[in-house]
């Protein structure tokens, strides 16, 4: 059923995943780590000020998780739309 409609739908859902994941990507790094760092620094977890923690630790952990989530979502999407390789 690899008709145009199926492929269009696949691409649209792919773009939606990208949008959501990149929004999170932006929020944790540029948002929590840079733009709102002073506000978050008011909160302290252990020895870390939260904004500082996002900038030097947290953002990186979330980046890693984002990619693995993306891999999982896309493998599923590929199968559903029958565009996966063998």
């Amino acid at each position: 059923m690899n008709n145009d409609k199926n492929l269009k739908q696949y691409w649209k859902r792919n773009l939606r995943y990208l949008l959501i994941l990149l929004l999170i990507w932006f929020t944790v790094s540029y948002g929590c780590g840079i733009l709102f760092v002073d506000e978050l620094n008011m909160i302290k977890i252990g020895g870390f000020k939260l904004g500082f923690w996002f900038a030097q630790q947290g953002a990186i952990y979330i980046f890693v998780i984002l990619i693995f989530v993306y891999v999982h979502l896309m493998n599923k999407l590929d199968k559903e739309h029958n565009v996966d390789e063998d």
Binding site: L18, L22, I60, F63, I67, V71
Partner: peptide
Amino acid sequence: LMGWTGGYVLLAL
């Protein structure tokens, strides 16, 4: 730290 890791999210996606 963020600059040299965040680029991989762009690369992957």
